[in-house]
Design a protein around this nucleic acid. Structure first.
Lengths: 119, 119
DNA sequence: CGGTATCCTTTCGGATACTG
DNA sequence: CAGTATCCGAAAGGATACCG
């Protein structure tokens, strides 16, 4: 595997700060689509700038769909995971399983089961 | 999932530059252990500083074993993947499968099969 | 041989303010 | 409401030199 290889490129955008959280937030809402402000509120501490950047990256990579409600004010936009986005959640779940098997510390979540994670 | 959660912490060190490459380099050599200089040569472009830092992180996280040959000069050190290190390769393989399914670009590798990757 | 130490550049992300 | 623009500090990583 070389630096520019597929896996590496994937990891590159997938592992920026907040990206995983954004994906999981969208995953939680897979029945109903999610709005920008809704996402922002669900991710305490994230700034508009970063959320916007992460969503754009994910959209560019085909993991996220963005739909803007036409001709209404204020603007409404909706985000959903694409098929590939949904599939990558399975990989994140794999990481979670690995982490629970090999790591005992799970401080911030407060519990090993980590129910809040939907994982 | 919150910022300090297990998965997030895992991702955090796993996704630093070079980390994946280092793990896979060790994976390749799973029959014979690997020396520092050997790893450095196998990863063109990496500096001693970064390789050293990555190996230490992985050792701290329990993915890598470091063994120093006692009382010889020049020093000889050997690195191997631990059990958890070997298991995480399976997750990397999952990412690879995902990437090959959803991404068509595989420029640096030159081929979709990506044999050099051992994945 | 297997690293550290130092410096320096680049990148990232936080804070804040602004806009169609 | 859904972002964009600007500025700034922190951190990561590359280059180079050095050491036991």
């Amino acid at each position: 595997m070389q630096e520019g290889c597929t896996v590496n490129l994937t990891v590159k955008y997938l592992t920026k700060k907040w990206t995983l959280l954004v994906i999981l937030e969208l995953y939680k809402g897979k029945i109903h689509t999610r709005r920008f402000g809704e996402l922002k509120d669900s991710l305490p501490g994230i700034t508009s700038k970063v959320l916007s950047a992460r969503l754009k990256e994910l959209e560019d990579e085909g993991l996220v769909n963005r739909r803007v409600e036409a001709g209404c004010f204020p603007i409404k936009s909706e985000y959903t995971l694409t098929e590939s986005g949904l599939e990558i959640v399975e990989i994140i779940k794999g990481m979670k399983r690995w982490a629970l098997k090999w790591k005992i510390d799970n401080i911030a979540c407060g519990n090993q089961a980590c129910e809040q994670c939907v994982l």
